[in-house]
């Protein structure tokens, strides 16, 4: 008979992790500095790296763009209405900032920063929060000298004491209050997304159904026809490469400008053509000079955005492989309208 092994008995499955494998994945940094690599970075270098790699979402001064996180400011607001929680006002440990920037940033290009760049960026974030002066150099040796203002602003979960009265085996069942008045209504704020088509299934008869199906088919078939002149394999490869761009750009049906402009019809379009998008001064100037996004111009831009156009807001290092550039342009061409 087969017997279930005792609790601590081993199955002999898996294999030992190699030291270089552990080194590659075990990157976390604890509040006491455990896990920090050797390195350093100063505020000025940090400002440059931040402008290039972070500012597109977080703003030149870490003040945040649109709905993207603000990294600076907010000190003294935690007991106010809508507190502003930033590295300076809220985060208890500097290790958290270092660890997060190192492993998860920049958004869409994580794990691309060198340790020195991370030290520099974190130094600049501290500077933006008025926590260090502009001479400051952050390194694995100075790391523990920095204490964040809200380090003592946290307590352990105390619900079982502070909310002890919520444990109540005999809750009221009758005559629990004298009167009940409506004090607030969601309809007044009216921030709920529109419920498109909620009634449609019941209301639409068979005739309308058929018409709707036709409309859907047309909408689906259209881009396929456009793409027919393109190499479908190349377009598919481009779709994969486009993942690098998706953090900021949308393309296709219903696409909108986000951090970056909408890219429908970009190939062959004049520069700066997305209505309502706030382009950089450099891009606006290029548009006024008549720049058109031919395949060749796009290819040059995508290879090294910052070299091609000094001052562009596009904080993307560039596509290294020509084949990726070709593919992504083919993919964008498949959305020519």
């Amino acid at each position: 008979m087969f017997v279930t092994p005792a609790a601590a008995e081993k199955f002999g499955l898996g294999r030992p992790a190699l030291p270089e494998e552990i080194a590659a994945w075990d990157l976390d940094v604890a509040p006491d500095g455990t896990g920090l690599p050797a390195g350093s970075g100063d505020v000025f270098t940090g400002e440059e790296v931040f402008a290039e790699k972070c500012a597109v979402c977080h703003g030149d001064f870490a003040e945040g763009v649109g709905n993207w996180p603000k990294l600076a400011g907010g000190q003294g607001t935690l007991d106010h209405e809508d507190p502003l929680k930033t590295v300076g006002s809220y985060w208890p440990y500097l290790s958290t900032t270092w660890d997060y920037v190192n492993r998860s940033m920049p958004f869409g290009n994580a794990q691309s920063l060198t340790p020195d760049e991370v030290y520099a960026i974190v130094a600049y974030i501290l500077y933006s929060n008025d926590l260090v002066d502009d001479e400051f150099v952050l390194s694995d040796e100075t790391f523990l000298e920095v204490e964040l203002p809200n380090a003592d602003g946290f307590i352990l979960d105390d619900r079982q004491e502070a909310e002890k009265h919520f444990w109540n085996p005999e809750p009221c069942m009758e005559n629990c209050k004298d009167s009940v008045e409506i004090t607030m209504r969601a309809m007044v704020l009216d921030v709920t997304p529109e419920e498109e088509g909620v009634e449609a299934p019941a209301a639409a008869g068979p005739v309308q159904d058929a018409a709707a199906e036709e409309a859907v088919k047309e909408a689906v078939e259209e881009p396929v026809e456009t793409a027919a002149v393109l190499d479908p394999e190349l377009v598919a490869q481009g779709e994969k490469t486009f993942k690098k761009c998706k953090a900021c750009h949308q393309v296709g049906e219903g696409a909108k400008s986000k951090t970056g402009p909408v890219l429908n019809g970009i190939v062959g379009a004049p520069a700066g053509h997305a209505e309502g998008f706030r382009y950089s001064k450099a891009m606006t100037a290029a548009a006024e000079d008549g720049l058109v996004w031919t395949e060749a111009e796009l290819a040059a831009f995508l290879a090294k955005p910052k070299t091609y156009m000094k001052g562009t807001k596009m904080s993307f290092a560039g596509l290294k492989k020509d084949s990726d550039i070709e593919a992504v342009i083919a993919y964008l061409q498949s959305y020519s309208q």
Partner: peptide, 10 residues
């Protein structure tokens, strides 16, 4: 010790 990562502090 806990890491005190972004998702458990900020």
């Amino acid at each position: 010790q806990p890491v005190e990562s972004r998702e458990e502090t900020s």
